[in-house]
Design a protein around this nucleic acid. Structure first.
Length: 340
DNA sequence: TTGTGTTTTATTGCCTCC
DNA sequence: GGAGGCAATAAAACACAA
């Protein structure tokens, strides 16, 4: 027998043909580990129409026994019947984790090995996770697109108001330059007032535009994170957790734009009118260590190097916090943390 | 019929928890 | 250290277009 292979007796014609199955990277050792784990590899379980449980493979010694040639013919990988799948699905809907008792009971009902039931639940959980991620991604993308449209509109508004201020300022200067009499001042009152109003609008618009730009930074990071997430080999992240929480909370960008340009405030928790500040800005150098930030004790807090994570965590009303004392903007670094 | 992409079943190795 | 979960992967089964 070749190393790394196990012998299976094949089925179908009942001719006792031997099948050599590659055990993969783990080889015999892997198979041994399987037994060590209490796994008895069985495929197919109840053969349709016959109700006979058959082991998928056996040891070489067993192979010498006649019954394995004649009675316990091995099977290829066999799909579960629709009835079996239906029952498993129903059970999964009730609880997607499988306690030993339930596993045994299900296996008994379905005529499967407990291991098969466990494997089915394992794979089902994996499928469920994939679907959930896809759904979340779609929702996030829709949200991102909407916010981007808002952002673009704000930028256009800002541009329009800037032009208006420039035009009106020029008009004022034209009027003031040649004259300077009282009458001229009186005549100029209307454009002056218009210019002042335009300036005030511009100030508001600039704040909003700056906030929107900062928000876009977060969104872009989030977008990148999603692409990373959907690529093979990536795992979950605090960003996704926070984002999921945000999606679940139904919280949008209906926050108050703080005048300090780099901050947003969001309504806290469910229905509360408390606002949580969320700093949005570039973080140079990644995570700011607790020792570096000069802040007090942050026990029970987790640092998040990612703007997006903090942004959404704050949006959800978590205890994200940044105090002015701890502000790291002097050196271009801002530290974030969240209450657990 | 055949080639190809997708889905399902199962294995392996690593990790965490008790 | 054992049990169980998960990610990655293999491979059989299946679907479907050409």
């Amino acid at each position: 027998m070749e190393p790394g292979r196990l012998i299976f007796n094949t089925s179908g014609s009942g001719n006792g043909q031997m099948l050599f199955m590659d055990c993969g990277a783990g080889g015999i050792a892997g198979a041994a580990g399987m037994f060590h784990r209490g796994v008895r590899p069985v495929l197919g379980g109840m053969e349709e129409g016959r109700g006979v449980k058959r082991p998928f493979f056996t040891s070489p010694d067993d192979m010498l026994e006649e019954e394995y040639y004649d009675e316990q013919l091995p099977e290829k990988k066999r799909r579960l019947t629709p009835e079996q799948v239906h029952l498993l699905e129903r059970s999964f809907e009730e609880e997607n984790k499988l306690e030993p008792e339930r596993k045994t009971e299900l296996a008994r009902k379905l005529g499967l090995q407990p291991r098969q039931v466990a494997v089915w639940f394992q794979n089902r959980r994996a499928r469920w996770k994939t679907k959930t991620l896809e759904r979340d991604f779609d929702r996030l993308k829709a949200s991102f697109d909407a916010l981007r449209a808002d952002h673009d509109a704000l930028l256009q508004d800002n541009h329009r108001l800037r032009s208006q201020v420039v035009t009106l300022t020029e008009k004022m200067q034209d009027k003031e330059a040649p004259e300077g009499s009282f009458g001229a001042a009186a005549d100029a009152s209307e454009p002056e007032q218009a210019a002042a109003e335009a300036k005030a609008s511009l100030a508001d618009a600039e704040e909003q535009a700056a906030a929107a730009e900062a928000f876009e930074v977060v969104q872009q990071q989030l977008h990148v994170k999603d692409e990373e997430r959907l690529s093979p080999g990536s795992g979950g992240s605090a960003v996704l957790d926070a984002r999921d929480a945000l999606l679940g909370s139904g919280c949008g960008l209906a926050g108050v734009v703080d005048s300090s340009v780099d901050s947003y405030c969001f309504p806290g928790g469910a229905g509360g009118d408390e606002y949580h500040e969320c700093v949005v800005g570039p973080v140079a150098g990644g995570i700011q260590s607790e020792e570096d930030d000069g802040a007090g004790s942050d026990e029970g807090c987790s640092y998040y190097p990612d703007d997006a994570a903090v942004f959404f965590a704050a949006a959800q009303g978590h205890g994200h916090h940044r105090t002015d004392d701890d502000d790291q903007q002097d050196d271009g670094q801002i530290s974030y943390w969240m209450w657990n």
